[in-house]
Design a protein around this nucleic acid. Structure first.
Lengths: 134, 134
DNA sequence: TCCAGACCCTAGAACAGTTCCAAGCCCGGA
DNA sequence: TCCGGGCTTGGAACTGTTCTAGGGTCTGGA
């Protein structure tokens, strides 16, 4: 039993059905940054009758519950990261899209964190609320 | 005549047609981060017979030429930033998507750079090439 | 145990953003 | 003027995501 599934099971405002449990199982681990279609594939390997709509619904619900973070990838498809607890950032391969979590507090990445990647550029985005929307 | 249009005009591998000039005109300025449909709208205000396909083609070509940077926004649509010269990062409103350029070298944003925004979180992405793709 | 209501799941349709395609247009060079 | 290559166009196609309608499942109360 993983912490994620434990947390979900103990919520009384959210039913942990078989489908949802399988999706949570798939989303468990370090360096997991799956796109929806990959989640669907892996979930179906465990429970073949999971539907696409359920995967999308469940992923969105888990994001709303704060259990996943949605990442927008350059290829246009969203990826989901279960590592919400600790502050961390991302190392992304510009060719294949592979991602690694890195914990860096500044935009210069320590060599020990390179994971063998050849770093090309850094992109910093500040998520904020503008005066008009405040 | 703006520097961007000047640069484009002087390329001999790329014809600066009326449509392309209008699109470049629309993309000129500071804090310009337009999505394709906005570029189309504004371009048509100047030259009504510009087609959607041309806007997409031209934006992609300008990105390939290094004259624009493509930004992936959480809402799924790409935005284009003409500010390619100087290293800078982005301040994004989570509600309306408004963006501002900021020049920050670390993930703590100086108050002078806040543009009145209420900063919620910082996201750092290292663009890299993984060992398999190298 | 049975029932009702709430919640959940499914397949397929619908949607939005982007790209592809075939055809016609335009410009520069011969 | 004619020709060829590149550019543009509208519409179709494609892809990722969301919506919809209908049926199923679970839970608590009678």
């Amino acid at each position: 039993m993983t912490p994620l599934i434990d947390r979900l099971r103990s919520r009384d405002d959210w039913r942990l059905t078989a489908q949802r449990r399988v999706i949570a199982e798939v989303m468990t681990g370090q360096h997991v940054h799956l796109a929806a279609h990959e989640v669907l594939e892996r979930a179906r390997a465990i429970l073949p009758e999971v539907s696409q709509a359920t995967v999308y619904n469940t992923l969105n619900e888990l994001v709303a519950l704060g259990e996943l973070v949605e990442l927008t990838h350059a290829d246009g498809r969203k990826r989901y990261d279960p590592n919400v607890g600790e502050r961390h950032h991302h190392l992304v391969c510009v060719d294949c899209g592979t991602m690694r979590d890195v914990d860096a507090d500044d935009p210069s990445l320590a060599a020990a964190q390179h994971h063998g990647f050849d770093v090309l550029s850094v992109e910093v985005t500040f998520r904020a609320r503008c005066p008009d929307c405040a």
